[in-house]
Amino acid sequence: MSPSRFAVRASSLLLAPALALASSAAATAVPHQRAARGYVALGDSYSAGVGAGDYIGSSHTCLRSTRSFPALWAAAHKSSPFSFPACNGARTTDVLSGQLGALGPRTGLVSITVGGSDAGFGEVMTTCVLRGTKACVTATAEARTYMETTLPGDLDRLYSAIRRKAPAAHVVVLGYPHLYKLRGSCAGGLSDTARGAVNTSVNRLNTVIAKRVADHGFTFADVRPAFTGHEICSGSPWIRSVSLLAYVESYHPTAVGQTHGYLPAFDHAS
């Protein structure tokens, strides 16, 4: 046998075990990927669908809506199983301690909105409505400080736990829309200075969330473009303004906002 033919044969013999291992690994990986299935919707009121109506009776104070983007997406894609633990008012610690039980090694898709309640947006908006522009500007600035100093660590702990519980899942983290159209059609209510301070805080919240999402290898879905022209004080709002009769629904997307704002953003990212 010539030296060159011997070298080729030896090379083939050495490569054979490696190719066999690679083939075996690929064969193992494909069934694992196919096994990942089902959709879990985690998060706060924006995922639960507060403001959209048609609340599921068994969800009680969580106010999960059949018109929420998770429920609409699951119905359209015939997702099975579909788990929906998202809950009104949930903070990162609430999701961490009470919602991750729905995740598992075979979970294929996860969505989540969280961070707004951590930053105290409900309290901020109460301050803005009841105490005027100066107090509103101060409250939004304090919320931004929390977003920049404390929230990143809270998100890291939660996102890491989601990945541990659902290692095969595609995780989509959705942001928050601007609440107000500046120089809009509202005759009263908050001043434009206060409205601008609120929108600035929303921008900061989305920036913080998007950075942590990228660092964890998840997908961030920005809903602000979809809601542009449909904020409070616009001609066709998809977000509820303050309501004393249904205060819990104030500053949340309507059913139209869930359908035409959140759902397309999630559908594109998923």
Rank of each mutant, 00 (worst) to 15 (best):
C62T: 00
G175T: 07
A18C: 15
S2L: 09
H252R: 07
P85H: 08
H216L: 04
L244C: 11
M1I: 14
A25N: 11
L179V: 10
Y176L: 09
Y159C: 06
T92Y: 00
G108S: 01
C186L: 07
T259H: 13
G116W: 02
D44A: 10
Q33H: 15
R157W: 08
T149I: 04
T145C: 06
L13Y: 08
V173M: 02
D94H: 10
H252G: 05
T127N: 07
A35Y: 13
I209N: 01
L263T: 07
G188Y: 01
S65C: 05
S59H: 06
K211E: 11
T200Q: 11
T126Y: 10
L130F: 14
V242G: 11
Y180R: 11
A102H: 07
V172Q: 01
R212H: 04
F266E: 01
G229M: 01
G108F: 02
P264R: 03
T61N: 12
G104M: 03
G43V: 02
V173F: 01
V124D: 12
S47I: 04
T228E: 09
V50I: 11
A197C: 05
T145D: 12
P253V: 08
H230V: 09
A194G: 14
G101K: 08
K78V: 08
Q33W: 15
A187V: 14
L72S: 05
R183Y: 15
A52M: 04
T113K: 03
Y247H: 14
A161M: 05
A74G: 07
G196L: 04
P152I: 09
K134E: 14
H260M: 14
L103I: 01
A169V: 06
H32E: 14
R204G: 02
A10T: 13
A166S: 13
T61V: 14
L72P: 12
M147C: 07
G89P: 05
D222P: 00
S2I: 07
S4P: 05
T127F: 10
V95F: 01
V40R: 00
L109H: 07
G51V: 06
G98I: 00
Y262T: 07
L245T: 15
T127P: 11
F220H: 04
D154P: 05
D54F: 06
